[in-house]
Design a protein around this nucleic acid. Structure first.
Lengths: 224, 224
DNA sequence: GCGAACTGAGTGAGGATTCACTCATTACGG
DNA sequence: CCGTAATGAGTGAATCCTCACTCAGTTCGC
């Protein structure tokens, strides 16, 4: 039964020597698999995607995947960790640069949508696919989301405290609504060519509506 | 709904003719299966749910499921058709009763969230699970969503036309953002109890923010 | 008894994961 | 510098397990 493997070597394929860098475990294999996974997951969804499809798209053998990931699901987790997490921390770094709450909020909006602009597949993975693994969603992503929502909520609370936002709404609800609004815009944009504007145009409009919607009653001059 | 009798095995019980109308299958089995499916799908997700689990939760045999549904996926489609669709048309009927665009918009918001209040599992199925079947999503749900979004967009456009809404934002983007905001609020509410208020309180706040955010520049008629 | 409604063990397909093997590259002895 | 051995990343067909779905049989209302 093992003899059959003799004939297997069908494609010599000229080993992708590539990057003259490290010759051993080519460090870009993992990255290649992740990039391919984003593409394929976005196209077919997580469950409908065969590991072998990811392998083919990445130009590696099925087995190679398991040298870098323990399971199919771990590919999804890694995608989340490798990309989203990075973006969240990036956001945390940039925020302090914006002095006022309205500016911070606008920055968050622009970042969240800006990140996805030009990364349609990644946008789809994050907005849709991630929700397909309920285990992932509940055990891993949920806490992260909460963290992110809390950060937005804190900005809202800050604005309420210094008088730039109305105080009759719950920061938590506003945070959820804002996140949902951005998620929704990104979702429809990712799924089918939304409207001409692109995400950055949408970002400006969402920001405009929310900031006006959050402006304090009567006297407050923030209106803008 | 937890009906008495009907232990897992043989059941001597009398067959409940139910809806005296249709003569074929006892009408409440189908309903029972759907109800169970909502529960189980919400708990485990669509793909992680075994048909046998739905059967057990519904108190029927595996095979019985296939007397009422052609496939596992059809259960999901039927859920959508039986519940959501009904709600959408219900919404379409109620809307004309509200004369102005702001009132219509507030009504939509209250309806969308009100529907889910007290139906946590259904909320989760709609917000999360439905996105798990990409076939369903793309072939069936997407057109419905578009239809719904268009309806919201039309309300926004109407308000812009009669001067009650600002005109510098795209109705389509506002519709998406609003839908997303409601979806996001419902999602976090469904996944882990949100904050004390419950969905109806959230609905009021989301409406407040959006309506103020949409008010035209000159003066705010809605201001309050 | 007849047949519609129902049952649930069994089946087969699909697909994730494994593992025996290949071979480019490196290490080393002379 | 060579030839030879050792190494381990990479491979992909075989394995094996998990369900969605089937259907021969049972139950029960009429």
């Amino acid at each position: 039964m093992s003899e059959s493997s003799l004939s297997s070597r069908k494609s010599p394929k000229s080993r992708p020597r590539a990057k003259g860098s490290s010759s051993r475990r080519s460090g870009d294999k993992r990255e290649r698999i992740l990039t391919a996974a984003v593409r394929v997951f976005a196209k077919n969804g997580f469950y409908a995607t065969r590991v072998s499809e990811v392998a083919k798209a990445a130009g590696v053998a099925d087995g190679t995947i398991y040298l870098y990931f323990r399971s199919k699901e771990e590919i999804l987790v890694s995608l989340f960790e490798d990309r989203v997490e990075k973006l969240l921390s990036f956001m945390n770094e940039r925020l302090p640069a914006h002095p006022t709450a309205p500016e911070k909020l606008r920055a968050v909006i622009e970042m969240q949508l800006g990140l996805l602009e030009g990364e349609r597949d990644l946008a789809e993975v994050i907005t849709v696919i991630l929700r397909q693994s309920s285990k992932l969603m509940k055990e891993y992503a949920a806490p992260r989301f909460r963290e992110y929502l809390d950060a937005i909520g804190r900005i809202v609370a800050l604005g309420q405290h210094d008088g730039s936002f109305r105080t009759d709404v719950s920061p938590g609800i506003v945070a959820r609504a804002l996140f949902g609004a951005l998620d929704g815009v990104a979702l429809t944009w990712a799924l089918g060519r939304a409207d001409g504007g692109g995400l950055s145009r949408a970002a400006v409009q969402v920001a405009d509506v929310f900031l006006l919607g959050l402006s304090p009653p009567a006297k407050a001059p923030v209106a803008k």
